[in-house]
């Protein structure tokens, strides 16, 4: 049996069939959404704020979960056992509260003030007439987003190479081509609808695989006995340091500042429906996360030694376990779920980056005194999506190390910069433009400083102190500067009439 375990992942006709079916589905969605997305820039970038509550829930949830959940969390649970649970708990709880409170304020405000990007919101909330705040935000968003997109393509290429015995370069080009086809044509509607399908692929794979892998091992008791025999701490969720636990829970702070997740909230048709999205999003998040944790635990029982995994890499656990236990067609679903995770994140990041270029840089900074026809803006947006994909590919090819260096900080950097400043912008009337700029800079710099100071890095994940620094800098500078004079009106736009929340 063990000879069969130390194997590589390889797809057969069933798996290829399931995977190709999935690809055809996402491309068909792109074509279906083309007409709607061609209407105007609001339709192209936020679906005209007409998205259904179910679509918004799933799209917001899977846009935030890249291959990190499928390959990273499963590998983490394999290595650490039950204590990996804290890595998923933080973001699920944070996102529940965001759907219920933060998102509703954001959606209401954005409708009243016609904001379709995150920099649009900041510029409007703080009367950013000279464009300084918008420029700082666009710079932060573009640097991190293009790196993110590039890294997603590289991950997709590697997954293609591992699953279908292809050259990684060909895999990267294929991943980029599929994403660009449905994003260019279908815009936000296509991205959201494909996210919804991708959410189904991911949840099916993450529920079916652990159930079958555990039952093939004679049930959960047998798996737990095996884990206890290997190492008692695998069954102890408290077997980690206090700093590590805080760091794991702190991953959730990143959800408050990643614009490709936040823009989902702006797109819903009725802000009151975000309550329903909160419920669906939380159930989905819990199912996917605990599915990933049980895959890691079952995987450890099946492969007690990491050397039994291809390249002795725990990130290969998910596809290898699937190949061992699932029917080839279901294995195809598992392979598709890896691409679903990668593409659902890459497409959302691509649209956010493109909206920053077209809406923020071109329409609001370079041509701010002109009225530009909507159709022309949509054409420019499509061109920018293609240019950004080429830039991400070129960037990844030219400087892969730099890309992965930037991605190390992307979740934390964006979370620490945008998270505290946006929360204060929504909830604290004394927040000022200068305070927000200070918070953006402090959050980003603290992330880098903490990461590169070994004594600090060992204590806790950099996002936690950087978030606190962003919050502190925004508050301190705001206390010494004057908030916009129309703050009361701005706050009124965030609240439901007669029901402040």
């Amino acid at each position: 049996m063990e000879e069969a375990l130390a194997t590589t992942v390889s797809a057969n006709t069933y798996a290829i069939g399931a995977f190709v079916g999935y690809l055809l589905l996402v491309i068909a969605v792109g074509v279906y959404a083309t007409r709607f997305s061609s209407t105007g820039i609001s339709e192209f970038f936020v679906g005209g704020r007409k998205m259904n509550r179910f679509v918004v829930a799933l799209s917001a949830v899977v846009s935030g979960r890249s291959a990190w959940l499928l390959l990273g969390v499963t590998g983490m649970a394999y290595k650490m056992g039950a204590s990996a649970v804290w890595a998923v708990t933080g973001y699920i709880v944070v996102e529940l509260f965001m759907f219920l409170y933060y998102a509703r304020r954001m959606r209401r405000y954005c409708e009243v003030h016609d904001c379709i990007t995150l920099p649009d919101f900041y510029a409007s909330r703080f009367n950013d007439r000279d464009g300084l705040l918008r420029t700082v935000l666009v710079a932060i968003i573009l640097i991190f987003m293009v790196s993110y997109i590039s890294a997603q393509f590289v991950s997709g290429g590697k997954a293609f190479a591992a699953s279908f015995d292809l050259d990684p370069g060909t895999g990267i080009l294929l991943t980029a081509s599929i994403v660009v086809i449905y994003t260019v044509f279908g815009g936000f509607l296509a991205v959201s609808l494909t996210d919804m399908f991708q959410a189904f692929f991911m949840v099916v794979a993450l529920i079916v695989l652990p159930v079958i892998a555990i039952s093939d091992k004679n049930g959960l008791n047998a798996v737990l006995l095996e884990l206890g025999r290997l190492d008692e701490t695998l069954l102890d969720p408290t077997a980690l340091s206090f700093g590590a636990a805080i760091g794991f829970l702190g991953i959730g702070l990143g959800s408050t500042g990643n614009p490709h997740v936040l823009v989902r909230y702006i797109s819903i048709d009725d802000p009151e429906q975000l309550r329903f999205s909160a419920l669906i999003g939380t159930v989905w998040n819990v199912l996917m996360a605990w599915g990933a944790l049980f895959i890691g635990l079952a995987g450890r029982a099946w492969f007690p030694d990491v050397a039994m995994l291809p390249n002795a890499d725990t990130e290969n656990l998910y596809p290898v376990l699937a190949q061992l236990h699932l029917h080839p067609a279901l294995f195809g679903v598992v392979v598709a779920s890896i691409f679903a995770a990668i593409m659902s994140t890459a497409d959302s990041q691509l649209l956010v980056a493109a909206s920053s270029v077209v809406r923020d840089v071109y329409e609001k900074i370079l041509r701010r005194d002109e009225v530009i026809p909507q159709k022309r803006l949509v054409i420019y947006s499509r061109m920018v999506v293609i240019i950004l994909v080429l830039a991400a590919l070129f960037f990844g090819w030219l400087a892969e190390e730099l890309v992965f260096w930037l991605v190390l900080f992307a979740w934390a950097g964006l979370g620490a910069a945008i998270g505290p400043t946006s929360i204060l912008a929504f909830y604290w009337k004394k927040t000022t433009r200068a305070g927000v700029i200070a918070g953006l800079v402090a959050g980003t710099l603290t992330t880098l400083f903490w990461y590169y100071t070994p004594a600090l890095k060992q204590t806790v994940y950099e996002l936690v102190p950087a978030f606190a620094a962003g919050l502190l800098a925004t508050v301190v500078v705001s206390l010494f500067t004057r908030p916009p004079e129309d703050t009361e009106q701005k706050f009124a736009a965030m609240e439901k009439p007669n029901s402040p929340d």
């Binding site: 069954l235 419920l279 819990v286 439901k496």
Partner: peptide, 30 residues
């Protein structure tokens, strides 16, 4: 015991919290 609490009770508790908060918010906004 802590294993059961985190791997089974915790996810159920998060979902129950979501139901409670949504119900509470609905009641608040009438």
């Amino acid at each position: 015991m802590t294993f059961v609490l985190t791997m089974f009770v915790l996810p159920a508790a998060i979902i129950l919290l979501a139901f409670f908060l949504v119900y509470y918010e609905r009641g608040k906004s009438g």
